[in-house]
Amino acid sequence: MRRPPIALLSGLGILCTLVTVVFARLAYGLVLPTMRADLGLSYAEAANLGTVTAMGYLTLLLYAGVFAGRFGGKRAIMTGLALAATGFLMLSVVSAYGWLLLAMVLLGFGTAFAFTPLISLLGSWYPDRRGTVIGFANSGVGLGILISGALVPALTDAAGPAAWRLVWGIFCISAVITLVLVTTLLRDPPRHSEAVSMRHGLASIYRNPHVVVIGAVYGIVGTTYIVQTLFMYSFALESQVNPITAGRLVAIMGLISVFAGPAWGRAADRIGHANALLICMLISFVATLLPVLRAETAVFVLHYILMGASISGLFTSILAASTSTVKPQHAAMAVSFVTVFFALGQLLGPAAAGLLIDWQQDFRLTFGVSSALLIIGAILGRYSRKFVTS
Rank of each mutant, 00 (worst) to 15 (best):
305 I>T: 00
216 A>F: 15
264 W>E: 09
205 I>C: 04
326 V>W: 05
297 T>W: 00
198 M>V: 01
323 T>N: 08
230 L>W: 09
243 P>A: 10
284 S>L: 07
214 I>A: 12
290 L>C: 04
247 G>H: 07
279 I>K: 04
303 H>Y: 10
253 M>I: 04
302 L>A: 15
297 T>N: 00
220 I>G: 12
242 N>T: 13
254 G>V: 08
249 L>Y: 02
204 S>C: 01
311 I>C: 07
237 L>A: 11
260 A>E: 08
229 T>L: 14
268 A>D: 04
267 A>C: 13
202 L>T: 00
286 V>C: 09
320 A>E: 06
211 V>Y: 07
269 D>Q: 12
329 Q>V: 09
213 V>E: 14
331 A>R: 12
309 A>E: 00
293 L>V: 11
297 T>S: 04
272 G>Y: 11
316 T>Q: 13
203 A>H: 13
324 S>V: 00
286 V>Y: 06
268 A>P: 03
231 F>Y: 15
256 I>M: 10
331 A>W: 09
210 H>L: 10
265 G>H: 06
311 I>V: 02
288 T>S: 11
319 L>R: 03
300 F>I: 13
224 T>W: 07
326 V>R: 06
223 T>H: 05
225 Y>V: 04
306 L>A: 00
226 I>T: 05
207 R>I: 03
273 H>M: 11
203 A>N: 12
281 M>R: 04
200 H>K: 05
228 Q>G: 09
223 T>E: 01
209 P>T: 09
297 T>V: 10
310 S>F: 07
327 K>C: 01
